[in-house]
Design a protein around this nucleic acid. Structure first.
Lengths: 217, 217, 217, 217
DNA sequence: TATGAATGAGTGTTCATTCAT
DNA sequence: TATGAATGAACACTCATTCAT
């Protein structure tokens, strides 16, 4: 994909685009704030423009419509989330015992969500098809990765079983994330720990049953 | 004045209201459908009226405003949900061993939510103060009940611990419900079973620790 | 006009119509109240029906539309007002000296307006063409009568002068009536007296200049 | 920062607003017309927008709601009316003999009302609280001023008498204004003259009784 | 006849989007 | 490029009027 990012060294007109890039970042930041506070549906493009300190017309110079803003924002975050998952699910992590594995996988993802609350706001019911698709793609990706991990420990499980368990894990993770994002400090840390406890206890039987003898539940 | 309102068999006036009652039911059903599909905010009163096959004016003959529709719908369901919880948490259930306890508590609640998908749609971010309050009250009630159960098994836990665990349980339940409601038939049953597995494994250590005489609070 | 009023002695079906007459009176009374409180424009037919204790459909069985209610009400009152004027402007009154003439003419009209506040409410800006016409006809009638009185005292005045003075008199009367209707008891009486003072002083020069030598202002 | 807002000659930004200012004037003019023709209540914002030749949305870019339009219109006019009263009731005017005093006070007020017919339309039953308050404040102010004038000429009157007479004067003025605004040219002039005659004759007795040293309140 | 449910055009207002400058 | 005025379809809601019973 050679035309994906202009390689940072084209001498022609990058100065012109610099302002545009800044504007876009400005607008996306404003959008993140407004989406976070009001949710996607209740966020008006005019209010995003105002938050960004520009006129509505300017906003539409960079984004064809409201959905595109959410897409761009969500896309960025999804991209970064995907990268994070790539790191979290490195083979070296997957060979650790379960508790360490959970730490290695969960901690960066939780940190990312805490630092980018708009991500979570957008993922939850933006109603934007593109976002939902992206979210679902991300979820599918995560699902695949989780299934991969599970498979290494329970190689005899049927795909349906793996899918089921992976969905449950993600569900537990998401609901815990709600609690985590709604709290701070020690309480937040307690929820993080509790999430790990839940997953540990849920998965322990399968994992400790020796990699050879997968648990059939 | 014995003929004022005594004849328990609908003497004269209610005949007129019969059509109205039917309309109200019709409108609530239509609203449930639209709320389910689009969420509360994106549901327009005109679309609800159209779905019910009546004109917007008719809708407003029975409901003073959009919020009232949600309140009526959500109120009924909240009420029934509360009743359900009352039955699910009967003392006789609470003395069963954990697996049976989970069955006794979860099954009716899950069944209720499956039969009333609009309930779940309304509870999630309707933005209607009355509904949100009702939902929070319901959640607080559930939380208290769950904590009560936990306390009988883990009488030494601190209130903060009980609160934490109760929140996690509810979170797990809610996220699983999303999966349950999104599926059908065997898959749904599998999710239900898996939810119980998760909770069982999560709570087993605490419950088996002290099968002592349950505290009566 | 033989079919105008059924002559009170037709044996056929007057019983049937009796209820209708009562309904009409009921509705008109309710309308008078609502018009008085809210004005014509802000009065809804439904609220009139409710005030009368009947359904909207019933109202429309007797009146083709909202305007007709105002017309009927205004018509009745206009009719009675006209009759009152007939009595107030009896020749015997017109020959009295000015103070007594003012008493004779003003007192019954003021009394009528105090007893029928809806009359005044309707006359002022109902916006109903028919009412406005009736009101204007009444005013024209009054104007003519006042001009007639003026002419007997100032026979040399031009029609334009008479018209001018008559309009002023009516204007003064109407604005005073607002004050009179807005007050009660002694204060109201004071306003009545003051109105007479104003008119007395305004008209005295013309009236006392002997009937033969009309004042030229 | 000397270039922040010093260059008293419209540096850059206000060019943009020029069109807006014109639109506001246009909309206010349209509103004045519609209010005049139909009254405030019956004037729809859409009809105002249409009269101004713009879309409803444009109207709402400059006014938050219908009431604000009336407030803007009425507020300006009330302000100017108050200023006019200030000039009309200058001490130098109040020491003139009654006929000149009436000219000095009435002429500018009448002229103002003739030039701004919307003022009168709005003052009469707009139902807008802000306007009604402003109108009542204006009337109270006028009342006080009139009472002040009266007191200088009739220092022995009781407050109740002054109030009564002042109310009558205002009432006469208002009803005459209706006639004045409903006519034009010579007829209008005749009504103006007649109004002065009425007030002159009404007040003469009191004023000629004691042309003593005016009280300074 | 009387009811009250039903209608639908209309109201004030919002907001994603476009356009003239 | 950036502005902010302009658009118009849509929304929540009202009310004079009609209709089925």
């Amino acid at each position: 994909m050679p035309q994906d990012k202009p390689a940072a060294k084209k001498p022609a007109a990058p100065r012109r685009q610099a302002r545009g890039e800044r504007r876009i970042a400005q607008l996306l930041e404003a959008a993140a704030g407004v989406f976070c506070r009001n949710g996607y549906a209740a966020a008006s493009t005019n209010s995003i423009a105002k938050e960004a300190g520009v006129s509505p017309g300017t906003l539409y110079q960079f984004f064809p419509n409201k959905e595109a803003i959410a897409m761009e924002l969500g896309g960025h975050l999804l991209q970064r989330a995907r990268e994070m998952h790539g790191q979290a699910f490195l083979p070296e992590n997957l060979q650790k015992p379960l508790p360490e594995l959970l730490d290695a996988v969960l901690d960066p993802v939780i940190a990312f969500c805490c630092e980018n609350p708009a991500f979570w706001a957008l993922m939850h019911g933006s109603g934007v098809p593109g976002i939902s698709q992206g979210h679902e793609a991300l979820m599918a990706d995560l699902l695949t990765r989780v299934q991969g991990v599970l498979r290494t420990f329970c190689p005899d499980s049927t795909p349906a079983e793996l899918d089921l368990v992976a969905h449950m894990i993600l569900g537990i993770f998401k609901s815990s994330l709600d609690l985590i994002l709604a709290t701070e400090g020690a309480e937040r840390a307690a929820y993080v720990a509790e999430l790990k406890t839940v997953l540990l206890r849920y998965l322990e039987p399968a994992f400790t049953a020796t990699p050879t003898t997968p648990a059939t539940h």
